[in-house]
């Protein structure tokens, strides 16, 4: 390998490989987003039967059905409908709800904001704690701290979100009465009040996502500490703190960032259940309600937002881990 690589050295210098990799990954991300949108759109096309009849009920006259189809644009071929749907979304227009004919963007905007608020609040608590304890568990592997963290995280991972949520409600809302069990917030709610009402849902999310993040951080650091260059540093007589700061940290950045971004993606999805438990007016709640009502257009729109965020966060994770990889930062 070294021999051939040496011969090839001249050719690769034209373009920085790191730029090339990032561009490739971004392009792949765009393709993924496109395919995801096609998938979400076309899932409805697989519906046996007809949406119009379904919405209007069996009793509807053929004329009403035809009129309804025309109104909603169902009479056009699927490909055309897909592109006009996509073009609409690009301008912030998601179409109309089948259930109540209101524009979807109107339904979504404030809820999306609420969901992002909740997710960020959970992330702000979860990320520092998870990374700190994950790193500590790895550094003091096999210690009491490590073993208790292992049992604790294993247990929390196993809990359904609603179980965690109800336990928190039981303790903090019912018994102690310090936080509300229902997070009824609106656009008028002042900031600190909003924070106060979101404490329990974000705490639930934090607990759920933190366990994963801690375990992944720990595994990444342990993997790193097992590498021969760390042993080399020990055999060079470097102090433990210096080994961690100078030798482990620069290489740990990539895996830790990766872990964080991946868990943010989990978190965005975890929001759905938590919103339902706390009756939090977010996008997840909207999605679940629309599924129950079979309001397909709203389901599509909110699925697309969730899936898009998920794809983008995964993309971010990959790009960041490329950018922080020392081998790629300094090309041959």
């Amino acid at each position: 390998m070294p021999k051939q690589a040496m011969y090839k050295r001249g050719d690769d210098n034209g373009m920085w490989p790191i730029l090339k990799m990032v561009t490739q990954r971004l392009a792949l991300g765009v393709v993924t987003l496109f395919v995801v949108s096609v998938l979400i759109f076309s899932s409805v096309e697989f519906l046996p039967g007809d949406i119009a009849t379904e919405i209007l009920g069996q009793a509807a006259t053929p004329e009403t059905v035809a009129q309804f189809r025309k109104d909603v644009g169902l009479d056009k071929p699927p490909v055309e409908r897909y592109f006009s749907w996509l073009a609409g979304i690009a301008q912030g227009d998601f179409g109309k709800s089948l259930a109540n004919q209101r524009p979807i963007s109107e339904l979504i905007s404030s809820r999306l904001w609420n969901t992002l608020f909740l997710a960020s609040m959970a992330a702000l608590i979860a990320v520092p704690l998870a990374v700190l304890f994950g790193v500590l568990a790895a550094l003091y592997r096999g210690s009491f701290l490590d073993r208790s963290i292992n049992v604790m995280t294993l247990t929390t991972i196993s809990f359904p979100e609603f179980f965690v949520a109800y336990i928190l409600i039981m303790i903090f809302a019912v018994n102690l009465g310090v936080f509300p069990s229902i997070s009824n917030i609106g656009p008028e709610t002042p900031f600190w009040d909003r924070v106060y009402r979101s404490v329990l849902p974000s705490l639930t999310l934090t607990l759920v996502v933190m366990a994963h993040m801690m375990r992944m951080t720990r595994a990444a650091i342990i993997n790193l500490l097992a590498s021969p260059y760390i042993e080399m540093a020990r055999l060079k007589g470097i102090t433990r703190s210096q080994i961690i700061i100078k030798h482990a940290l620069p290489n740990a950045l990539a895996p830790i960032i990766n872990v964080i971004a991946l868990n943010m993606a989990f978190l965005v999805v975890g929001v759905v259940l938590v919103e339902v438990v706390f009756v939090y007016p977010g996008l997840g709640q909207l999605l679940v309600d629309s599924v129950a009502k079979r309001d397909i257009t709203v389901v599509q729109a909110s699925s697309l937002i969730f899936a898009g965020t998920y794809v983008l966060l995964n993309l971010l994770a990959d790009v960041l881990s490329i950018l922080t990889n020392p081998r790629l930062l300094h090309p041959r």
């Binding site: 995801v36 759905v272 259940l273 679940v288 599924v291 397909i296 389901v299 969730f306 899936a307």
Partner: peptide, 17 residues
């Protein structure tokens, strides 16, 4: 591609359909 969509969301979508 299937894994690019979060599982819960995809499940909700398919269950609706």
């Amino acid at each position: 591609v299937i894994m690019a969509i979060p599982q819960l969301i995809f499940a909700l979508l398919l269950l609706t359909v």
